[in-house]
């Protein structure tokens, strides 16, 4: 079994060899490590991507907007991902973002996962019919569990989810009431012995 450290190093070096700057190569190293931690096929997709990269003639996107569509060919998942991560503080306000035609979209995914951590919000990502819930870069829930190469995505839809409770107020109150049973009712004697007893705050 390869260690995560080996996965990071080899992904970084191969990314540099594939033409990315050292700074971006470092990002890719961390991302592939992340995908493999989450049991997603990072190495498999990166290897396939680099083998095809030249012939794909990918388009780069610099400034990301609400709706992004590549002109002729597909978007490069790395450049789109790096810029998504870098621009997430601005993009957060857009709530929903779409990309049309993205090559090897699984390589775009870890940038979004890391962006979720940066803004402290979950991000929902739909890659054609595959759905991913990116939980603050701590874990990824998905209906996709195949260990396969995804060559392209026609549509990527992203939604920044507001931090909301997943339960009803009634449910919370019921549970809180039960938790109160760990408290001790204070009688007069206990009140007298408490911190600050006998003093006044009105000075």
């Amino acid at each position: 079994m390869r260690s995560l450290s080996e996965i990071d190093t080899v992904s970084k070096r191969s990314s540099r060899a594939a033409g990315y700057s050292w700074g971006i190569a470092e990002e890719i190293g961390k991302n592939i490590r992340l995908l493999e931690i989450f049991s997603l096929p990072g190495i498999k997709n990166l290897n396939s991507f680099f083998k095809k990269k030249k012939e794909l003639r990918l388009e780069n996107i610099s400034i990301i907007k609400q709706d992004n569509e590549a002109n002729k060919n597909e978007y490069c998942p790395i450049i789109a991902g790096v810029n998504f991560l870098d621009q997430i503080k601005t993009l957060e306000t857009l709530k929903e973002i779409t990309f049309k035609k993205v090559s090897y979209p699984l390589l775009f995914l870890p940038f979004v996962s890391r962006a979720a951590e940066v803004i402290g919000k979950r991000i929902f990502l739909k890659m054609d019919d595959r759905e991913f819930l990116l939980n603050f870069n701590n874990n990824i829930y998905s209906n996709y569990t195949k260990n396969e190469i995804i060559v392209s995505a026609e549509n990527i839809y992203l939604k920044v989810l507001e931090n909301r409770d997943s339960f009803e107020e009634k449910e919370w109150n019921e549970l809180y009431k039960l938790s109160e049973e760990t408290f001790v009712e204070e009688n007069e004697s206990l009140k007298q012995g408490g911190a600050g007893a006998g003093l006044t705050d009105n000075d």
Binding site: S21, W22, G23, I24, E26, E27, D86, T90
Partner: peptide, 12 residues
């Protein structure tokens, strides 16, 4: 973010 969008060769 804007600076890096066109200057990623110095990202490291």
């Amino acid at each position: 973010a804007k600076f890096l969008s066109t200057n990623n060769e110095l990202r490291h």
